[in-house]
Design a protein around this nucleic acid. Structure first.
Lengths: 205, 205
DNA sequence: CACATATACGGAACGCTGTTCCGTTTTTCA
DNA sequence: TGAAAAACGGAACAGCGTTCCGTATATGTG
């Protein structure tokens, strides 16, 4: 689903050559290695370390990602996509209320994991300016669909904006670093209970 | 007032020699140069650049500030002190209501200027862990005294915690980067109007 | 006043970054 | 099968924070 930088197929024109197989393979390996490195050592993980993990030279890294920030952005987008794509999957596997609360926890984990990136985000580097809009564009519709389904099922109040909920969880997740991982979960549950408060028991009536 | 790293006088013991005059002079020059450099180029300003601005060798910088973060911290504390010390000065020069609103704007400017540092603060580097507590220790009493005086004069509701107000302004100042400097000022004024809402017109009656 | 020494200074040098460059290798397509 | 296009690898460069140590200087004393 998401337009991750990982998939490049010749939908551009008919004439030019196909993307070389080794190039695609290295790109995938790089994204995997970078994701692992960022999870382990944070976003400050050296490019050389990532290249080595991927079994690739430094030059190859910079061929695919001209700047270090491009690699960070690519990994970020990939994980945003994974989080967004979890919404329809959960909606198909559970009832609307359960799908909503499961996705909220999934989102909370994502936010907690990306804590280190938040610092880079607010560093003023213009390279990261594209991230917030991508974040919104992918995650707002994902949550909104769950929210609407839950409202239609009558387990949640209608008319609540996904944007506000996303922002609230992101803000509430910040102190959960110092206060333990329990705190964030409690706050999310509290928010969901708040949504349930004004809900009517049956949709059609 | 504040225990800035800039003043070192032999209150420790009686025996050892006095602090050398050139050492003190260089320390002052370094703090001034660092403050200017951070204001111009942000907290990422190179140590060498600061040393040059101060007319000093790199070795001298590291003699006074073993780590780059120590220099940042020293400047930060100095500016926190300046902001805190503005409270009694404003209280002496204006009536309680005016003193309070003037200090809030002073504090807003401080927060807006230290935006770049905020990123470093949340980077997880343990060197900066001491800063928030210093921030609280100096600024909370400063604001609380203004708040109490204004409440006693009846221009502001009583019983509002300085901590909450400080945090609120800090959070509200963040979007004011993108929304223009007007935004932060409007939000601060709004907060102050909120404080005025429940106030009684005269203190003794 | 001159001297001895604790103290501070300066900047070359080290190791680590991100990034560039280009000779070499590999893949693709005719 | 063979040329040309594409991608690879890693040495090399510039800039960073930090360390180290020979040199200069301020301080208290004989």
């Amino acid at each position: 689903m998401g337009d991750t930088a990982g998939e490049i197929r010749p939908e551009d024109d008919g004439k030019p050559r196909r993307v070389r197989a080794d190039a695609q393979r290295n790109l995938d390996a790089l994204l995997r290695a970078a994701m692992a490195a960022f999870a382990t050592s944070g976003v400050d993980a050296p490019v050389r370390e990532i290249a080595e993990k991927a079994g690739v030279g430094i030059g190859t890294v910079y061929r695919h990602f001209p700047q270090r920030s491009d690699l960070i952005i690519a990994v970020f987008r990939q994980e945003v996509d994974a989080c967004a794509d979890a919404a329809p999957a959960l909606a198909a596997a559970h009832d609307p209320g359960e799908a909503l609360s499961r996705w909220m926890r999934r989102y909370l984990d994502f936010i907690a994991a990306k804590r280190g990136l938040a610092a880079a985000l607010h560093s003023g580097d213009p390279a990261y300016e594209v991230l917030p809009s991508y974040f919104q564009r992918r995650l707002v519709p994902a949550l909104q669909s769950l929210l609407d389904a839950a409202a239609a099922a009558g387990v949640v109040r209608a008319g609540f904006a996904a944007t506000d909920l996303l922002r609230a969880v992101a803000v509430l997740a910040a102190p959960s670093q110092e206060l333990g991982p329990e705190h964030g979960r409690r706050m999310v549950d509290l928010l969901l209970d708040g949504l349930r408060y004004g809900a009517g028991p049956s949709p059609g009536a």
